[in-house]
Design a binder for these strands. Structure first.
Length: 772
DNA sequence: GGCCGGGGCATTTTT
DNA sequence: TGCCCCGGCC
């Protein structure tokens, strides 16, 4: 492929950022400025320069981002090459490395990954064992202190000797955090488990304590790229720094103005101070916004300008000027919902938008209920994002817990979940004894259960027998697991554990839904095996499956995106997305900014960035609404308009007629609700004048290079050029067929799919039909 | 072991 | 207001 042609799709600064590959670089990418585009092109560019895909490490924050990027790169360089890239989330890439180096740091390579619920449950047990008052030691607080420590690379050992932390805990009246942390860490290790934070912390420990291992990966990863750098925490930053220290070929991309995850340990200084850490660092600024109207971009700029700590940049748009941002006051949260619903319907009718062109963004999930009600009353289809993800549902976690016990029986949290589910007469009393014995002998509860006598477990013969039956069940699964693929194993486990019988005797609505979820899981497992098989892996075992899904979130499982629905989500969840029309609701003091952050200047700046993220999601229309009264925790509260509304240059705003007060001068002076005429609903938000045609530049599809490998034109009626429809990848065209020399039935088909780029499929497993 | 009711509580959550 | 957790009771 011609490199010049390929670069012609980029603007000057994007091109400069892509082609600079000699040393460290920071790409400051304003909202909507083609950040992902630069990353994908840069990787493709490196590959076209002849760099091995193997030598490129590229890190993202979500699986979805990694997958999409891989797909786009595959469209340029082909699936086979893209597949060999080290591309994924920090957590998935480093869990992979940790698995292969696990024994250096004393973990089994089949270690379990504890999700946040597992780690909560373990902490709860520990605090109970320590007889701590759970009102003083609040679970969420304890968990976040430990998590913050890990993200700041403070191990349990260094926590204990850190005077500031200890003093801080004493003054917060929780002096025993260090003790909880130490016990927690020991228990995780005993269970052969790492929590999400461990994946980063242990990687650092591995690299710190094993120079040879570090050298190996340093040599391996010749180029390192990191997306969303503003959201990295210290642990991630340190891993990157260690790996890139020698060659300095690191490129980080991000936008300091969109750093909104400090509460999860993200450290905005990582991006602000990047230049100081890497001398000779080149800075590229992507300042042209291709997403939004000029008005939206300018309004967002005027807002973020009020923050003090930021990298100077001038984001601009050459799109249409667009309409002003409409600000609407409503009497109550209820009417705010009504106003939003009316706004959607009106705009939709006037400009023939689909429902899927709208998003409603809010600060807290609790706000969704009332909005949902308003939309439902007006028959507006919607989809709420957030809430329990598929893998967090009880019935799913139960099945997965059996798998976890099979892969790693020392997994204490999995054991707790299933030992008496379905009921086997092993109750709390027995388990308490088991845990006490486990602690006394410094072994895992599984060790105790599988050999009670060795650990002097004081239980009667009946109980001993029950334990024996349970451990025999798990052992029998474990015996099978090494020769049985996960698909067959899953069917067997669900049946023999008694789970399916239990689930299927419940005929209630919820029960039926649980059964459906179980079926969904089994279907998912079967598809997972199919995918692996098509990619050339004959069998997938329980460990492979767990390794993959324990780092998946609901973001990855969202299917049926094609429905025409209004999107409702928190502002946090909307990061990285874009919509033609955006409603940002609940712009009130105490809510946005959140009351928890109002006294802290840094926190207020983060809330302001959050608002910036919200506004910049909009391509064509942006609406801001607030209510004067809102139900919160069961009682009605008077609300003051958000201070952030005053931060936006008023020339980009339009107050909804009739009720558009100047909140700038009237804070706290609006009429009391009693004096307010109880008019039914607020003014509708949309004005029909100023129809502007906003043209948003769409990313051009990446051109595909041609292939020239030898084709063997037979097998199932396929020849190169045949159009097929694949069950999952949709329509595509066969490029080549290739027959393995050892096995004539082993035919690989390269197909160029319209939406998924180039894929290599194994003919005997691929599910497709021939078109024409 | 499962069900019911009272009390306390309440952001945001890429992994 | 509504959810979750715990403790008490059957």
């Amino acid at each position: 492929m011609d490199v010049e042609d390929f670069l012609a799709d980029l603007n000057k600064s994007q091109r400069d950022a892509v082609t600079y590959t000699d040393g460290a670089s920071l790409v400051v990418a304003g909202a909507g400025s083609g950040k992902t585009r630069v990353l994908t092109y840069k990787i493709a560019y490196l590959l076209l320069q002849g760099i091995s895909p193997h030598a490129i490490l590229s890190l993202t924050f979500t699986n979805k981002a990694a997958r999409e990027m891989k797909l786009r790169i595959a469209a340029v360089v082909g699936d086979a090459v893209a597949k060999r890239l080290w591309m994924g989330t920090f957590h998935s890439i480093f869990s992979r490395i940790l698995r292969s180096e696990a024994e250096c740091i004393g973990y089994p390579s089949s270690f379990t990954i504890y999700d946040s619920a597992d780690s909560k449950s373990l902490l709860k047990s520990i605090m109970k064992e320590m007889q701590l008052d759970d009102k003083t030691y609040r679970l969420n607080m304890v968990q976040s202190r430990i998590s913050n420590a890990k993200n700041a690379l403070v191990t349990s050992g260094s926590y204990q000797s850190n005077k500031d932390l200890i003093a801080g805990d004493i003054s917060s009246k929780v002096p025993l955090i260090h003790e909880i942390y130490t016990r927690y860490q020991n228990r995780c290790k005993q269970a052969g488990a790492m929590d999400f934070d461990d994946l980063l912390l242990q990687t650092n420990i591995l690299f710190r304590d094993h120079p040879a291992v570090l050298e190996k990966y340093r040599g391996h990863f010749q180029y390192i790229l990191v997306d969303e750098y503003q959201d990295t925490n210290s642990a991630q930053h340190m891993i990157i720094q260690r790996l890139s220290e020698i060659h300095q070929r690191i490129c980080v991309v991000g936008d300091d103005a969109q750093s909104i995850y400090s509460f999860r340990g993200a450290n905005i200084d990582n991006i602000l101070k990047f230049k100081q850490i890497y001398n000779n660092c080149q800075v590229f600024k992507l300042e042209q916004n291709y997403r939004s109207t000029q008005t939206i971009v300018n309004a967002a700029n005027s807002l973020i300008d009020k923050n003090t700590e930021q990298i100077p940049k001038t984001v601009f748009s050459e799109n249409a000027v667009g309409e002003k941002i409409k600000v609407t006051a409503s009497y109550s949260d209820y009417e705010e919902g009504y106003a939003v619903a009316s706004g959607i319907l009106e705009l939709q009718e006037n400009k023939s938008y689909d429902f899927s062109h709208f998003a409603i963004l809010y600060r807290t999930n609790a706000q969704s209920r009332i909005l949902e009600e308003a939309l439902r009353k007006r028959n507006i289809p919607y989809r709420i994002y957030g809430g329990l993800s598929f893998y967090q549902r009880k019935e799913i976690k139960d099945v997965l817990a059996y798998f976890r016990m099979i892969a790693n029986p020392h997994d204490e949290e999995a054991l707790k979940r299933i030992i008496n589910y379905p009921t086997r007469g092993i109750g709390d009393t027995t388990m308490k004894k088991v845990f006490t014995a486990a602690m006394e002998y410094q072994v895992s509860p599984w060790n105790v259960i599988s050999d009670p006598q060795a650990y002097n477990l004081a239980v009667n013969n009946g109980t001993q027998n029950k334990l024996r039956v349970f451990s025999a069940l798990i052992e029998s699964f474990r015996d099978l697991a090494s020769n049985l693929n996960i698909n067959d194993l899953a069917t067997l486990v669900v049946k023999q554990s008694g789970l399916s019988a239990l689930l299927y005797q419940d005929r209630s609505v919820e029960g039926i839904s649980r059964q459906e979820n179980l079926q969904e899981l089994l279907k998912g497992i079967s598809e997972f095996c199919d995918i692996k098989r098509e990619e050339g892996e004959e069998e997938t075992y329980v460990g492979d499956f767990l390794a993959e899904i324990s780092l998946m979130s609901d973001q990855d499982t969202n299917t049926d995106e094609n429905r025409d629905q209004v999107t409702m989500m928190t502002v946090h969840a909307a990061k990285g997305l874009e919509f033609k029309n955006v409603f940002v609701v609940g712009l009130e003091e105490e809510l946005f900014p959140s009351s928890m952050n109002k006294d802290n200047y840094k926190a207020i700046e983060e809330e302001r960035r959050l608002f910036y993220v919200a506004i910049t999601r909009a391509e064509e229309h942006c609406f801001l609404t607030y209510a004067e009264n809102r139900y919160l925790h069961g009682k009605s509260n008077f609300c003051t308009p958000s201070r952030f509304l005053k931060d936006i240059d008023p020339s980009y705003l339009q107050m909804a007629e009739g009720r558009g007060r100047s909140f700038a001068s009237e804070r706290n002076t609006y009429n009391s609700p009693l004096k307010q005429p109880h008019q039914a609903y607020s003014q509708t938000i949309v004005s029909t004048e100023n129809k502007t045609n906003v043209t948003t530049e769409r990313l051009k599809s990446i051109p595909t290079n041609t292939l020239n490998s030898v084709s063997i034109d037979f097998a199932k009626g396929l020849t190169s050029g045949t159009r097929i429809r694949h069950d999952r990848f949709g329509d595509g065209k066969v490029l080549t067929l290739e027959c393995s020399q050892s096995d004539k039935n082993d035919i690989k088909v390269k197909v160029l799919f319209n939406h998924f780029g180039e894929k290599q499929l194994l003919l005997k497993y691929a599910k497709f039909t021939i078109l024409e």
